[in-house]
């Protein structure tokens, strides 16, 4: 009996400790999800139907919006990688004090609401914004560049919003790289470019994977930035869902859109993870 008791005690303690958060997740997440899923399987007469999903998949307008959502999220991940990697490399090399300063600098903008920051971009990128007026005054362009209310504007806004996740994920994995590896590669004949390609990049794969997954998921479900910086010209799935909830009041279709968004995000993240996590990746980065 005693042995039986002690075997279950860790599990019981774990459940007790997890109970509060499990309860919150059940009430605020699992039950609503089940409800929304059930809703997505109803037609307007409240009968079981796959009609909402069929409607979506047969309508090139809807499929186009899904495709655009995926494309913009993908571009955002790329932009975050390209602009975030140098910052992360700088931070990984910097002294403790400098790293603290840079961390604060990249987190600080997030103390301001995303709505305000998006309007800030409007001031910078608009037809009469700083960039266009400066370029026109310098005589480099005759008419303003279109930097806003198009796909470019959305990617700029999303990159600004989510690059911090990419940088922090990259710093964590770059910081774990033993700096003597660079010396070893150097003395074996590697140039700086070669060291980056053969040492830095492969060893930061866990950071690239974590950062990309985070930024991709967040971009797929972003509403505010696409709405403010894309306008009606660049409709993405979350914006479409919102319109169906608030304007056309077609809740079953909105529910189906939500699940299509969730499903496609999950599928793409899984495919990406499988592609990165090769046998070698597991050998090298699995614990111990």
């Amino acid at each position: 009996m005693g042995a039986h008791n002690s075997r279950w005690r860790p599990l019981r303690n774990a459940l007790l400790l997890l109970a509060p958060v499990l309860l919150v997740l059940l009430v605020a997440f699992v039950i609503p999800m089940v409800y929304i899923f059930a809703l997505s399987l109803q037609n307007e007469e409240q009968q079981f139907s796959l009609g909402n999903y069929a409607l979506f998949l047969h309508d090139s307008y809807y499929v186009g919006i899904l495709w655009r959502t995926i494309k913009l999220s993908f571009y955002t991940v790329l932009a975050c990688l390209v602009f975030g990697y140098p910052v992360a490399m700088f931070m990984a090399k910097a002294s403790g004090r400098m790293r603290g300063v840079v961390t604060f600098l990249i987190i600080a903008p997030h103390l301001i609401s995303v709505v305000i920051r998006n309007f800030g971009w409007v001031v910078i990128l608009g037809n009469k914004g700083w960039i266009n007026t400066t370029l026109m005054n310098l005589g480099i362009i005759d008419k303003p560049l279109k930097l806003l209310y198009n796909e470019l504007g959305v990617v700029i806004g999303l990159t600004d919003a989510y690059i911090v996740y990419m940088v922090l994920a990259l710093v964590t994995s770059l910081y774990a790289v033993d700096t003597s590896l660079y010396k070893a590669a150097g003395i074996l004949g590697a140039s700086s470019v070669r060291k980056f390609v053969s040492i830095t990049l492969p060893l930061s794969l866990p950071g690239i994977l974590a950062g990309s997954t985070l930024v991709f998921s967040l971009s797929m479900s972003a509403y505010v930035t696409p709405a403010l910086m894309g306008g009606s010209a660049v409709k993405v799935l979350p914006v479409l869902t919102y319109e169906n909830v608030m304007i056309t009041l077609n809740w079953p279709l909105s529910a189906a859109l939500s699940f299509l968004l969730l499903g496609s995000t999950y599928a793409l993240v899984t495919i990406f993870t499988k592609l990165v996590e090769t046998r070698r990746y597991k050998e090298v980065f699995s614990g111990a």
């Binding site: 003597s180 010396k183 070893a184 590669a185 150097g186 003395i187 004949g189 590697a190 492969p202 090298v284």
Partner: peptide, 20 residues
């Protein structure tokens, strides 16, 4: 002359093998 042009072999205290 940079270290990658010196044609030297070096062994470090921390082994410094490429883990990947």
């Amino acid at each position: 002359v940079p270290s990658n042009k010196r044609e030297l072999g070096m062994v470090f205290q921390t082994y410094s093998l490429f883990p990947h």
